[in-house]
Design a protein around this nucleic acid. Sequence first.
DNA 1: GGGACGATTGAA
DNA 2: TCAATCGTCCCA
Length: 173
Amino acid sequence: MNSRLNHSFYRRDVLEVAPQLLGKTLVRRFPDGNSLRVTITEVEAYKGTDDLGCHASRGMTQRNRVMFDNGGLVYVYLIYGMYWMLNVVTSTHSEPQAVLIRGVTGAEGPGKLTRLLKIDGSFYGEDLVESNRIWIEDNGIKADYITTPRIGIDYAGPYWSKVPWRFVLKSQS
DNA sequence: GGGACGATTGAA
DNA sequence: TCAATCGTCCCA
């Protein structure tokens, strides 16, 4: 039986939460009552003010302030003027962290999955534990995964751009 | 107020 | 290799 992930799941360190999101079911419920259910296949961790790849590294701004809130909230932002990025806030207000959802079944790539799921700026700060239009369910699957450096953050320097904080679900065989 | 740029994508 | 496209952030 699937069950919605609760606050205690999200309010842990991002390096624990990120890989555990792999294989979980992301549910998007639309106004017409229909739902789209996809499996999370690829994520990245962004951790705190020291991580030069993390938006929080330059302090709190109007855009990233939700990362400084408690885990379980949605952080979305527009990139390149055309793609919404979907993130899940983790930890507590003491530590700004988030998981970028980079891939789901049916859409490879963070910009494509938000198009598929019709996620935009109106989801900023949405509570995944309470929302009736987006949440994540545990389906009991224990996922195998590989790690690699995060994508598209060369500007973060030789150390932070190479930290293996991208987690990719291993394909079943 | 102005300018550079981005956790991307798809086409040339 | 390069354009699309615009909000955010930094500097003046």
